[in-house]
Design a protein around this nucleic acid. Structure first.
Lengths: 252, 252
DNA sequence: ACGAATGTGAAGGATTTTGAACGAAAATGA
DNA sequence: TCATTTTCGTTCAAAATCCTTCACATTCGT
């Protein structure tokens, strides 16, 4: 990869996060530390970022970041860890479906720079990848649901019917013995299609979601292949997941 | 492949990426390094790109194409006026198709609060309406074209084929006697569908677009029903539009 | 068809960029 | 505080890229 290309990529990264460390950059840019440092120095000279010990900071103020990011303040640290762990379950060159929701968005941030084909119905998630050249992104069509920025309805479902993916990464409203649930009929309807279209289903849910039942039943627990959560999960729920042969990943 | 052909191809590449390296160009253009370098030097002399070690960078800054939020758009005041004038041509309760582009985005801002059903393939434009309670917004699906934030490809075109609208509001790359043109084959392809799907076609174009021919031919002038531009338009071009029975709106 | 003009690709040396090594500086933790 | 670990900046040789030159091919006008 050439210098100019690398430096563009660094700037892209800052559109979705405020800090990157050298090690991550080396991996993403496939370059040595020396080279990354040189790139950062140059970008700093151009006033495009600020170097700090261990990496570099975005100069864009926090206000500029997506509204979406503000919504996801609750359980932020947990969600960040879950995002990191879930991203590790994905292999390069796979086709993923990502649904909406702040936890999934956190996964998405950790997928930047990977070579993937991603299908989503969430505009905030699409925006995370909008400058990426390594991710091929397809958005489902559909009616734009206000507030959440997700696309729903017949157009969306029709399109999901035409797709098949290796992995689905999905957030949920609640998870109990009786299965997965969410808050909105239309959303649940499209999520059912996503499950059908995917070979493997990964559920991401912070510990607060366990034992909670949201408005609309979405699917039985057995539809999930992997559940990724944080270390706050109670032992009884760990048992609930594991005893059904579902892989449980606890992010640290 | 001839020099001119190669150089056009290089420019087209830049509509989707900000950097290309020499090796890629050699492969795509089936030419030697020497030749590619010569082409790049020439394009640089014409102010169409910037050479850097390892390849070349697009000069069209990303702001110009995609970043509607910031106010770095060229001809800003003109576009604002055009947006206002074009919005007056729309009646409540109509179904509109809006394509991408900064001029159309300006129209969109002037449609906020109106009761409309809007179909678009542009994410930046969708975002303008994302909080609106009076506009029902449908996004076409499709492959997300980097940088421009528009959805394209078969999914998009299929969906446009299922839609019919009262009015299409469309920006363009250039407009001459021989018709409308734009910079990218895929975009042109979806725009053709939009024209087919609409009863009335409104073209919005600041005066700088007149007499300019962009890369790909889109449609004949006669496809347009109304052209909205600013007061900088030359008399000869006014004549060109009016003499064909196309309504010309000059925004003040 | 012919020569002139322009476009093309290969070869060489000049220049820039890169990655590894190593001592200096900063962060960390007891 | 002090020792340990991590990160930083500098230097240098190797690699990649660039520019120039030149011989050959193609296009154009006569």
């Amino acid at each position: 990869m050439k210098a100019a290309e690398r430096q563009l990529k660094i700037q892209e990264l800052f559109s979705s996060q405020e800090f990157v460390d050298i090690e991550t950059l080396c991996r993403l840019l496939e370059a040595s530390e020396s080279t990354v440092r040189r790139d950062l120095s140059e970008l700093e000279k151009d006033g495009l970022l600020r170097r700090v010990h261990g990496g570099a900071l975005s100069l864009q103020s926090r206000d500029d970041l997506l509204d979406f990011q503000r919504q996801s303040v609750r359980c932020q640290e947990e969600k960040r860890l879950i995002g990191k762990a879930a991203a590790r379950l994905v292999e390069d060159e796979q086709t993923l479906i990502l649904d909406g929701g702040s936890t999934v968005a956190e996964v998405a941030r950790n997928l930047l720079g990977r070579r993937l084909h991603i299908v989503t119905n969430s505009i905030p998630i699409a925006e995370i990848f909008s400058d990426s050249r390594t991710v091929e992104l397809t958005l489902t069509g559909g009616f734009l649901y206000p507030r959440l920025g997700v696309l729903l309805g017949p157009f969306c479902e029709q399109m999901l019917g035409n797709v098949s993916a290796d992995v689905l990464i999905m957030g949920i409203g609640g998870i109990t013995e009786s299965g997965l649930s969410n808050n909105n009929t239309l959303i649940v309807s499209s999520e059912c299609r996503m499950i059908t279209a995917s070979r493997k289903v990964i559920i991401v849910a912070d510990h607060a979601k366990f034992g909670r039942k949201a408005l609309v039943h979405l699917a039985g627990l057995e539809e999930a292949d992997v559940v990724v959560t944080d270390s706050g999960i109670a032992p009884e729920f760990q048992e609930m997941i594991s005893s059904r042969g579902i892989e449980l990943v606890v992010a640290n």
